[in-house]
């Protein structure tokens, strides 16, 4: 048993194709990759919304002037 089908390198390399493990799962991997990417954007937008909302409520006139002066 081998996760990429290779159990020995005593082969002619011109006859060897893919060598990554779990060949045949490419579609599943792409779905996982898409889910990771889209999930990241959803989390990021939600987090940014919450962060901006929190900052907006804290930004009173005195704090605003202080941070404007800080440049």
């Amino acid at each position: 048993m081998s996760t990429n089908g290779m159990t020995s390198w005593a082969v002619d390399l011109k006859d060897v194709g893919a060598i990554y493990p779990f060949q045949g799962s490419e579609t599943l991997l792409v779905i996982l990759g898409l889910a990771f990417w889209i999930g990241w954007h959803i989390w990021q937008i939600r987090h940014e919304n919450a962060e901006l909302k929190s900052e907006k409520t804290r930004a009173n006139a005195e704090r605003s002037r202080k941070h404007i002066d800080r440049y």
Partner: peptide, 16 residues
């Protein structure tokens, strides 16, 4: 785990 069973070396007699 991911590479379980694959040859660790091209040389004969090595553990996988």
């Amino acid at each position: 785990f991911m590479l379980w069973g694959q040859p660790s070396s091209p040389y004969e007699g090595y553990a996988h």
